[in-house]
């Protein structure tokens, strides 16, 4: 069994080792055949035993959308709520119960359109939530309209001559909101996905994990260049804390800092070794991670970083809330209802 994850220090430990099977429910999984959600579900179920906490102290909360059916398939406590509101509901849950491991499952429409406000506020507050954002760049459950992450010009049912919207980059949004943990992974790369989950579980506070997920019905192959063995090594920048950002099938590409402070991709042959950026996920200045999030080309996906962009320490929302309650109790003792109701100015009627 793994050692205690930092974010789970107040969650009761499991009495015995668990297996992925312990986290499966008897419910028939109702995603379309070939949906990327199956791979994510399997990866999450496979990872859960690593947490080493009691199953009954884990809660999955979701909003609305294909991804939001996720809680029904996890044999933990779960709430399938309403569109966009999962971070708000999970905030109330996590702020009330530090003995719970709370996970939010959401999608690009749920988290970034209707629920955008709750997402950024959960991130700035640093509530102890792990948010899995399944990004397939399309609305699935409503049958194929463009989403806030769809490319400009995207032809869909609601944009027959192309969407005129400019897309969000989810990680840029999160880093702009000063999220303390931001990562990206891919549905089909189980090992990488689980490594990111592990890092998120270690993080005290809100972790936003964007998972590139394939919708084979309405937006098939949206992330193809990152998945195809022929191309993926050339387009993907794998982020490893403390290591030089060198990538490409020939390891001939790298990330360098430009004169204006932003990051850019260069040929290794053209730069001095000392110019190659060493990845620092703990850099407290969000502009570094932000700049990383800007490297990828929104249409070709060239130079897409995956892994942990940012992982910095900041007190969690609920630790602050708890500390205030403990201080109040320490200073004045537990509340005395009779004294409260009496107040200061009373009079007697005899």
């Amino acid at each position: 069994m793994a050692e205690t994850f930092a974010s789970l220090s107040l969650v009761p430990k499991a009495d015995a080792p668990q297996s992925a099977k312990d986290f499966k429910t008897d419910q028939e999984v109702r995603w379309c055949p070939g949906c990327g959600d199956y791979a994510i579900l399997a990866a999450v179920q496979g990872f859960m035993p690593e947490l080493g906490v009691k199953r009954e102290n884990i809660v999955f909360v979701s909003g609305i959308g294909c991804s939001s059916r996720f809680p029904y398939y996890m044999n933990t406590y779960g709430v399938h709520s309403i569109h966009g509101r999962a971070p708000a509901i999970a905030t109330g849950l996590a702020a009330s119960r530090p003995d719970l491991s709370v996970w939010v499952v959401t999608g690009d429409g749920d988290a970034l359109s209707i629920g955008g406000n709750h997402l950024i506020h959960a991130l700035r507050r640093n509530v102890n939530l792990k948010i899995l954002l399944f990004n397939n760049r399309i609305y699935g459950l409503t049958k194929g309209q463009f989403s806030p992450t769809s490319e400009t010009g995207k032809i869909t049912k609601s944009s027959p001559v192309g969407s005129v919207d400019h897309p969000f980059n989810p990680l840029s949004v999160a880093i702009g909101a000063e999220a303390t943990f931001v990562a990206r992974t891919i549905d089909s790369d189980r090992q990488h996905l689980q490594s990111v989950l592990r890092a998120a579980a270690e993080h005290e506070g809100t972790a936003l994990i964007e998972i590139y997920q394939n919708c084979d019905i309405f937006n098939d192959n949206a992330w193809e260049p990152l998945k195809n063995p022929d191309t993926r090594d050339d387009v993907t920048i794998r982020l490893v804390h403390g290591e030089k950002l060198i990538f490409g099938s020939q390891l001939d590409r790298c990330v360098v800092r430009k004169a204006d402070g932003t990051l850019a991709v260069a040929n290794v042959a053209d730069v001095a070794e000392s110019e190659i950026v060493v990845h620092d996920a703990h850099n407290v200045d969000p502009s570094y991670a932000f700049s990383l999030s800007r490297l990828s080309h929104p249409e070709t996906l060239q130079d897409t970083p995956i892994g942990v962009f940012r992982d910095v320490k900041r007190p969690t929302f609920e630790s602050g809330l708890r500390a205030q309650i403990e201080t109040a109790e320490a200073v004045a003792g537990a509340g005395d209802l009779n004294a409260l109701l009496q107040g200061k100015d009373t009079w007697e009627v005899r």
Binding site: R85, I89, T91, G92, A95, L100
Partner: peptide, 17 residues
């Protein structure tokens, strides 16, 4: 909360808890 919706959402989450 950040808005009325989050306010009741958090309250409902707390009730669940």
């Amino acid at each position: 909360a950040e808005d009325e919706i989050a306010a009741i959402g958090a309250a409902l989450g707390a009730s669940y808890a």
